[in-house]
């Protein structure tokens, strides 16, 4: 059996369990996420829905190439969290808020990636989906995953009266002439 020289390596769905935040880093990350999405109005805080565990699954461990989205290396996020530690772990939440603002303005791209991960992780958690169901009129039927149930049940049907009123026309092949010689639809008294 010849040795494979090209293996189709795809990003593992759901990330990998290869990386774990230290307890301290997890606390800083929780505080960061709680600053982005404050709890309230029936919605939990990100720290209550295991946000740091979600993000850890998308961190590339040390010594490996961060090949796929979000291309987040362990060393990189570790250093980032260390830099935010004092402010985010301060009992005064205003310090954390100002530190996150400074991060956003000074390193917009790095901030955007972390914000995306927080939003992806938070809004995919079952407890948050449950809050959407309970708190939002438009979200009563929303599900955590699209399959297997789908949303066909109760989907409104076409209004046959409206369909009967639709007007329109089109150019037949033999009607296509250079634009200079072609009457506009308005001139012909027709819709599209």
């Amino acid at each position: 059996m010849p040795t494979p020289v090209s293996i189709s390596l795809k990003p593992p769905m759901g990330g990998t369990p290869d990386y774990r935040f230290s307890e301290r880093h997890a606390r800083i990350l929780d505080a960061f996420a709680d600053t982005l999405i404050p709890a309230g109005e029936g919605f939990p805080a990100p720290s209550e829905v295991e946000i740091s565990g979600f993000i850890a699954r998308y961190v590339t461990p040390a010594g490996m190439e961060p090949k796929w989205y979000p291309r987040l290396a362990a060393e990189q996020i570790g250093a980032r969290l260390d830099s935010l530690a004092d402010a985010l772990l301060d009992p005064d939440p205003r310090r954390g808020y100002e530190a996150v603002r400074a991060f956003e303005s000074s390193e917009a791209d790095a901030f955007a990636v972390l914000r995306e991960l927080v939003y992806f992780g938070y809004y995919s958690h079952a407890a948050v989906v449950r809050a959407i169901n309970l708190q939002l009129a438009a979200g009563q039927d929303y599900r955590q995953t699209p399959q297997p149930a789908g949303y066909l049940e109760g989907l409104e049907a076409w209004d046959q009266e409206s369909l009967a009123k639709v007007r329109g026309t089109y150019l037949r092949t033999e009607e296509v002439v250079p634009l200079a010689f072609q009457p506009t639809f308005a001139q012909k008294g027709l819709s599209a």
Binding site: S6, I7, P11, G14, Y69, Q144, Q147, P148
Partner: peptide, 26 residues
């Protein structure tokens, strides 16, 4: 990804439409 909690995130990763992002062997 349709039965995975991460279905939205995976649209930027394994299910990105850009081969430069997916970087699959194919």
């Amino acid at each position: 990804p349709h039965m995975s909690r991460e279905w939205e995130l995976e649209k930027r990763r394994a299910w990105s439409h850009d081969p430069n992002v997916r970087q699959g062997g194919e």
